[in-house]
Computed example of a mutant assay.
Amino acid sequence: MKVRDILSNKGKVAVALSGGLDSSVTCFLLKNQGYDVCAITVKMVDDAKFEQIANNAKKVADKIGIPHYVMDLSKEFKKDVIDYFEESYKKGQTPNPCILCNRTIKWGRLFDFAVDELGCDFVSSGHYARIVDDNGIKKMYPAKDLKKDQQYYLFELDQRHLSRILFPLCDYVKDDIRQIAAQNDLPSKSSKESQDICFITKPMTTKKYITDKFGVKKGDFIFIKTGQKVGSHEGFYQYTIGQRKGIGIAWAEPLYVVKLDAQNNVVYVGTQDDLMQKSLTIHDIKMQYPNDRTEFEALVKIRYNMEAKSAVVKLDYENNTGVITFDEPVASITSGQAAVFYDKQDRHLIGGGWID
């Protein structure tokens, strides 16, 4: 009998380990469930802060008693995620770097390394989502902790990924995870929540990061209903659709950013009703499982932290584009964000695309 068979009859699994709470408990749970577990920490940014991340991850792996690998993907992360992030703002879009990181880093190069180089049967992470087998088709459902559910960020995964993914946190809420870490004295037991944009750390803000990158560029605020100039700004890239704070214009009603003109450095503002739209177009569609329906009803999210809304989805597979028409108008449709659609009956993830 091989050593690996003695260690586990469930198979070998690699966990993307940041050293934080969720990924640490993921390693702990999988080992306790009888898997042959190893951990992989990705170096995304070449700075001193990463050394602390790697050290924290190593302490967790040592505590649990599992092998620990470090992958230096800082050049790839710069090209695939940071450059994309910056270019999106330059074009007047609002990017979603977490989805790109999932596609190219975690479920791209890390996944391939785990399967092809380490010979892993499965790959895991601290994401909150549930994978269910439906007659041989893997589908992604919400996790128990709906406040933490992360299906939205994972819409680009397909059957190749889903067939090898383990998400052990799907049956827990966040308080359970903290309790498990504390009871087992994991080094991450006091870790704080991770931030959305990992390469922009406090006290740096996204606005300051972008302004440092592109400089100050004076432009006009235009009231969209009348075309009237109502103020000045220091660069359209400092704003995003739906933004209310930081506009600094005295008005009878609250003003919001409703449109960005990157070519002319104009920020259009309006009242809340100007934010409302019923339809949008998408490109670069990804489906999580084979699907030949060209028109169907679904629940749709156009950003992570919103309630999914009822809509009709029409897809053009030949051109990889689509049109989504909501039953009722929704606020702040934003170019560069993802529109993700879910089944109306059981809320499993069907697919998604990028908003034009």
Score class of each variant (00 low, 15 high):
205 T>H: 04
244 R>L: 11
56 N>K: 05
68 H>M: 09
338 A>R: 03
190 S>R: 05
194 S>L: 09
300 V>T: 06
130 R>S: 15
181 A>H: 04
286 K>S: 15
352 G>N: 05
149 D>Y: 06
261 D>C: 08
108 G>K: 12
215 G>T: 08
321 T>N: 10
292 D>P: 03
72 D>Q: 09
47 D>L: 09
213 K>T: 13
28 F>D: 08
211 T>Q: 15
188 S>A: 15
315 L>R: 01
237 Y>A: 03
352 G>H: 07
58 K>H: 01
282 I>R: 01
346 D>R: 07
57 A>M: 03
97 P>L: 07
232 S>W: 08
248 G>N: 13
163 S>F: 05
209 Y>W: 07
266 V>H: 07
127 H>N: 14
289 Y>W: 10
12 K>R: 15
340 V>W: 00
100 L>K: 15
309 K>G: 01
126 G>E: 06
204 M>S: 08
258 V>G: 05
159 Q>D: 11
64 I>F: 03
134 D>Y: 12
183 Q>I: 02
227 G>Y: 13
296 F>H: 04
105 I>H: 05
14 A>N: 03
284 D>Y: 07
68 H>V: 02
322 G>Y: 07
117 E>L: 06
248 G>T: 13
149 D>K: 04
237 Y>N: 05
236 F>G: 00
329 P>Y: 04
98 C>D: 11
30 L>G: 06
306 M>V: 14
346 D>G: 03
236 F>S: 04
326 F>L: 06
108 G>M: 13
220 D>E: 12
22 D>V: 07
79 K>Y: 14
240 T>D: 09
131 I>S: 10
298 A>M: 05
337 Q>C: 09
320 N>M: 13
90 K>A: 09
146 L>T: 15
295 E>W: 00
94 T>C: 08
127 H>M: 10
251 W>A: 15
245 K>F: 14
200 I>Y: 06
125 S>G: 14
226 T>L: 10
278 K>H: 09
294 T>R: 13
235 G>V: 06
329 P>H: 08
51 E>A: 08
157 L>F: 12
153 Y>G: 04
341 F>K: 01
150 Q>G: 07
65 G>K: 10
132 V>I: 15
147 K>V: 11
307 E>F: 10
112 D>I: 03
231 G>Y: 13
56 N>E: 10
3 V>D: 12
247 I>D: 03
312 V>T: 15
